[in-house]
Each structure stands twice: as structure tokens, then as C-alpha cells.
């Protein structure tokens, strides 16, 4: 049996839809993610990946349809959802004017970690992500890879059941990307956290994800294990890139707006 169905599902969406005026960013998306999986939502810029993540993390109300995370409805039980998830936004979100330690401290407080455990958890998280040495330095002096690791450390402090990572390696150099992958793997192995990540790098999905879904203009073009998808297009030696082209068309023509392009580049520049 394929994992991620029936009672095993920890994230489930039903005809989940989000419009922005005329644009249908996510169009009647129905899918599920199994407990303990590393699940990858793939698609070119503008496919609707961030919009899906924002809805599942309660940041954005859906226009129609529904979704549950750990059994809680994302609209009616938003408060409960927030307690059981962690989130690393696509944008770089650590506060550069604070130290690494302080960045973690805020979230330790906001997530109500018991006082007695707070310091130990912060230290553990820093150690886990290899940042102990940089804990008291201002984050604006960190490299892009360090910032990402700090953000993942932050999102893990309260031991969430599902961790949402939106384009976690966007703009990172190959070595830093590798480090992020290893840490994500380790997180799942250590805490059994379900990982929901988005990416437009096929190699990332291939090496990291148990299952992927390909999002194309807000709708699901295909889903399954990377191996299934490669087999499905009937080409020996197919790569996920081929799968991607097969479903999304050569039209990697994106719907990315000017504003988003500007943002992406800004992020990339800060990381570089």
C-alpha cells in the first residue's frame, strides 16, 4: 500500500481552491500526505506552491474547498493547527538585527516551551543544525546556508508534527543545499516529523522525497513516488526533469509576476 492514504494521512486537502481576483492560484487541489513522509510539491514559479503552503499554515484562507492538518480543519481550528506545525517561509525570515540565540528564544517563548526546558531545547536545536559557535553573532553576519539552518532549527523547537518548508534551498550554493538536505533527513529520522516541502529543483525532489506531486497552474498534474512517475512516462532512464516536462509541458513558461520575480531575486541576492 502506498503510504499517505486513509487513516495514515496527516495532511489532506479536498478541492482546495484560492483565487486572487481573476487569477486562480490553486484550483480544486485534492491530495494527501502520509504521516512520517517527506513529501515534495513540485512546480515552476507561479504554479501555486506557496499559495498551497500559506493555506495549510493558516496564513491565507481558502476561497473554497477544505483541508486538514493532523486532523484539524485549517479554517475552523486554525489555532490547533498552529500548535502542531512548523513553517519556514520561502523568504529569508530570520531577523538579521538579532543573534541566532535570540531568534530561537522568541519562538521558544511564543510556542510556550516550559521554562525549565527552554535553554536546553535552544542549545539542542543550535547543536543539531551546527550553529552553536555562531549563536551569539548577529544573524546579518551569517551565510545564506547558516540562515536557512537557523530557520529550520527555529521551526523545530516545539517538535511540530508537520514541518512546512517552502523552497528551502532556493538561492543556496550546492554545498549549502546538500547540508540542508542532510539536516532534513536527520530531522525525520530523529523525530519522525512529517516534512512537506516545495521546490522547483528536480534533483532535490529526487534525492529527498518519498512522494511528490507535480503542480501545474494550480492543479495537480501527477503524483506518486519519484520512481512511479519516471516509470509512468514510459521512458527508460527518465529523470524527474523529463517527468516534469512531460506534465508541465515545455511551457516552463511561468505565471510569476514582476513583483515575485523582484522578491525572488532580492532573496537570492541576500543569500548570495
Amino acid at each position: 500500500m502506498e503510504p499517505g492514504h486513509d487513516d495514515m494521512a496527516i495532511v489532506e486537502t479536498t478541492a482546495l481552491t484560492r483565487r486572487f481576483d481573476a487569477v486562480v492560484a490553486v484550483d480544486a487541489l485534492t491530495m494527501s500526505v502520509g504521516t512520517g513522509e517527506v513529501f515534495g510539491l513540485l512546480g515552476p514559479n507561479g504554479a501555486g506552491k506557496t499559495t498551497v503552503v500559506k493555506m495549510l499554515t493558516t496564513l491565507l484562507p481558502p476561497t473554497s474547498g477544505s483541508a486538514t492538518v493532523a486532523g484539524f480543519d485549517i479554517v475552523r481550528q486554525a489555532g490547533e493547527v498552529r500548535r502542531v506545525i512548523g513553517y519556514v517561509p520561502q523568504l529569508l525570515s530570520a531577523d538579521g538585527d538579532l543573534t541566532g540565540y535570540e531568534n530561537l528564544w522568541v519562538f521558544a517563548k511564543l510556542y510556550d516551551l516550559p521554562r525549565a526546558e527552554r535553554e536546553a531545547r535552544i542549545r539542542d536545536a543550535l547543536a543539531f543544525m551546527g550553529l552553536l559557535g555562531a549563536a551569539d553573532k548577529l544573524v546579518r553576519t551569517y551565510s545564506g546556508g547558516m540562515v536557512r539552518r537557523l530557520e529550520i532549527a527555529e521551526s523545530m523547537l516545539h517538535r511540530p508534527r508537520v514541518l512546512f518548508l517552502d523552497e528551502p534551498t532556493l538561492g543556496l550554493d550546492p554545498l549549502a543545499r546538500q547540508a540542508v538536505w542532510e539536516h532534513v533527513e536527520q530531522l525525520r529520522a530523529t523525530y519522525g516529523t512529517t516534512i512537506f516541502l516545495t521546490t522547483h529543483y528536480m534533483d532535490e525532489a529526487d534525492s529527498l522525497c518519498d512522494r511528490v506531486a507535480i503542480l501545474h497552474r494550480g492543479t495537480m498534474a501527477a503524483s506518486g513516488t519519484p520512481a512511479d512517475l519516471k516509470a509512468a512516462i514510459g521512458k527508460a532512464e527518465a529523470t524527474l526533469d523529463d517527468v516534469f516536462k512531460h506534465y508541465a509541458g515545455d511551457a516552463l513558461e511561468t505565471m510569476e509576476t514582476y513583483r515575485e520575480a523582484a522578491r525572488t531575486r532580492r532573496t537570492a541576492r541576500r543569500l548570495g
Binding site: 500559506k54 493558516t58 496564513l59 517561509p89 511564543l110 521551526s155
Partner: peptide
């Protein structure tokens, strides 16, 4: 940063 604050309980 705002997004992360809003996702926290």
C-alpha cells in the same frame, strides 16, 4: 518574519 509570527500560536 510576520508570516512566522502569525503561524505561531
Amino acid at each position: 518574519i510576520v508570516q512566522k509570527l502569525l503561524v505561531s500560536p
